[in-house]
Design a protein around this nucleic acid. Sequence first.
DNA 1: AGCCAGGCCAAGC
DNA 2: GCTTGGCATGGC
Length: 209
Amino acid sequence: MILKIYDTLLKTYGYQDWWPVSTTADPFLEISLGAILTQNTNWKNVEKALQNLQTKKVLNWKTLQKINISILQELIKPAGFYKRKSTTIKNFVKTINPQKKENITRQTLLNIKGIGKETADSILLYGLEKPIFVVDTYTKRLFSRLGLTKKDIKYDELQKLIQDKIPKNTHIYQEYHALIVKHAKEHCKKKPICTKCPLESLCNKNVII
DNA sequence: AGCCAGGCCAAGC
DNA sequence: GCTTGGCATGGC
């Protein structure tokens, strides 16, 4: 079933080729900042913040390590929660050594205050190309509505359930997560739009969260 | 004009 | 352990 959902979404929407990263000199850094900035935030707002960082030539490790935090806050303000996120970014660039990416583990990232499971896994999957499935609210909502899981399933439990059912392959994990986001924005919204839903035949519509 | 967005943490049971 | 409230901006 998990695979059938993937196939159906892929057939419907095509390859997403995520993570949406503007051609930058340092994809790992930009992906990591994007993952932090998008916490509970619309991606459009994240783009504005990243654009500010780009324009002000701040989107590099050295500058971020040195920059005055109040200036950083001004630049990322469009992404919201800017006080908290600026601290997280500071913690991140202080802790991570971009020369030694091979040493970065999930636990390394989780030890950074402000980085939780989803953010850590996004950095691992898209920034470091490790086969770790990213669970988010969209994922929980979709699988719960499809009747496959309880709506209050825990992060690690849902992650394991999905990883056990699909090939352990970075590209597939990246693509599947991106397709879920796409689908959740088009149909499986908080207030679902079930008309023309590609998963209609697989879905138990009685379960509306 | 509200409601919502690709979470996380601290505090209180 | 689990639940709740706070964090903030911009789009629709």
